[in-house]
Amino acid sequence: MKHIFYLLNFIIVFALPSQLIADSSTIIEQEIILVANTSVDSISTRELRSIYSTKLKKWSNGQAIQVFNLAPENNHFRQFCLQNLRLQPHQLERIWKRMVFTGTGTPPTIVSSIDEMKNKIMTTPGAIGYIPNNIEIPQQYKLKVIK
């Protein structure tokens, strides 16, 4: 029993206070733009959701889609979910975990930084990802979303 109390104490002392205040003060909202390495120049929110839940596997031009994602604790991932997918990050993560632990699919490939995301998009045919709009990238990689 003692161990459990130590564990709870640890969690409460170190992790809880930062999380209760984290929401409002530490996140700087940044517009997120979609980037892709394909001849397709626009997609719908619906297609984007299907791509990020890894159900839709081909672009409309027949090219295989390679989905890249930032780690779930990255604020840009959170903003991407809310702004572009109009989904809570929890919901998307639950879809991925369900796939992983029922053997029915594989979640997107995780990249460790915006720089890596940009590099992967520019070097991988069929790639899709997202970056904040203050990061420069050639126009040809920008993907429009039709609402």
Binding site: R94, K97, R98, F101, T102, G103, T104
Partner: peptide, 21 residues
């Protein structure tokens, strides 16, 4: 899929033992 497959039934059955889902 061939082999042992989880049964899809309702929204949660296939992941009933997977706490995080």
């Amino acid at each position: 899929r061939l082999g042992r497959n989880k049964i899809p039934f309702g929204l949660y059955n296939s992941a009933r033992d997977i706490s995080i889902t």
